[in-house]
Structure formats: structure tokens, C-alpha cells
Amino acid sequence: MSHSNITVTTWSLEQTSPSDLRPSPPPEGDGLRIVRAEVPSPEFSRFLYASVGGDIKWIDRLGWTYAQWQEQLGRPGAETWVAYEKGTPAGYVELDAQDDGVVEIVYFGLVPAFRGRRIGGHLLSYGVARAWDLAERWPGRTPTKRVWVHTCSLDGEHAMANYERRGFRLFRTEDGQEPDVAAPGPWPGAFPSV
């Protein structure tokens, strides 16, 4: 079975100083907590990835083996920060420490039921702050000099604006072809058929 291709625009954004971060206040109420998942857990990370990315065509990690997940999560400087609302996972930020004081926000997003409730701006702000102070938790790491992220035209409609409001600056735009696949959902049949 062949898939047609679609054009996808990818935008890469960066901060080059901790003072670039313009944080968003936490949402009203006291039900939100952000906690680092300190024990690498392929099961939990795959749940977050599939649950947050299922309706926006995150597919690159769906075929990963357990060992591939373990390797990624076990990298020095890799961190997963999870937002919980009243004990329920609402979204996450995955950080990856790279060479020369660079930290990438590899994944960031909310489970669909938690979008549009002012959680995303706060979670992103918190995750970026953790990218800036990451070296404090990893002895021997170079202090962070640059935090970067990419988003694309398949991501949520508010993603780019959220990054820009938090103080990220665009440094690269690329167009490419990707297979036009169905949104996989966190499990088959998770989304109502249209």
C-alpha cells in the first residue's frame, strides 16, 4: 500500500541566554505538579509519546524496540519532566543534553484532554528553565549555553506561538516531504472515525 506525500514545514528555534526565557504563570488552582521521571522507563515514556503525539502524527518512535527506548532515556543529561493534574499525566517535556552546552527540547506537548487550559505555557516555561539549569543535576556537564527546539506544521496550531511567547527565536525554516499517514492515536481506534 503506497502513501502519498505531504509538504511539512519545520521551524527550528533557540534561546542563547537564560534571560531569553519569558515564563508563563502556572494555571489557576493548585492541582498541577511537574515532576521529573528520574528512573528511565520505556513503558512510561512510550505512553507519554503516544498519548501526546497520537493525534498530530508523531510516528518516528512508535517502532522503537525496548532497547532503543532504554538507550535514549539512559543518555547522560536526558530528562523527562511530566505535568500531572490531580495525579493524572497531562503532558511532558523531554530534554536531551548535547555537546558543548547545548540542550534540545526533543518533545513537548499535552495529552489532548488537557490542551487549551493554560497548562502548556507553564509546562514549557518550566521545561526550558530545567534545560538552562540541567548541568547542575549532571556533574561534569558543561553549563547550558543554548536551548533549541523544532516544531512543524503538523504540530498543534498554537505550538509556534507558544515557543515565541516564551522567548524563542526562529533560526531555520525547512520544507520537506513526509508520508501522509493517518494519525496513529495512542491505540488503534482511539479517535472517532470521521
Rank of each mutant, 00 (worst) to 15 (best):
S193R: 15
P18A: 05
F191K: 15
A129N: 08
L170W: 06
W148N: 11
V194Q: 14
I56P: 00
W69R: 06
A183N: 11
W148Y: 14
G127A: 07
Q15A: 06
D100V: 02
S17I: 04
V111R: 10
D180T: 09
P188D: 10
D99M: 14
L154D: 01
R141K: 12
G91M: 08
E38P: 01
E85Y: 06
D100Q: 14
R117W: 00
G74Q: 04
V39Y: 04
L110W: 00
R137A: 13
S153W: 12
L124G: 02
G77P: 05
I119R: 11
A182T: 11
L154H: 10
D175V: 12
Y84R: 02
Q177G: 08
A183M: 02
R117G: 03
C152K: 13
W69Q: 07
W138I: 15
T7N: 13
P143S: 07
W138K: 08
L124N: 04
R141E: 15
V35C: 09
S17Y: 00
D96T: 15
Q98K: 10
G101H: 07
L48C: 13
M160D: 09
P186K: 15
V181C: 06
E71M: 05
G91N: 07
I56W: 00
F44V: 15
Q68C: 04
S193V: 14
N5T: 12
P25C: 06
L95I: 07
L154C: 02
H122L: 07
P188N: 02
A161H: 10
R146M: 09
T10A: 12
L110S: 06
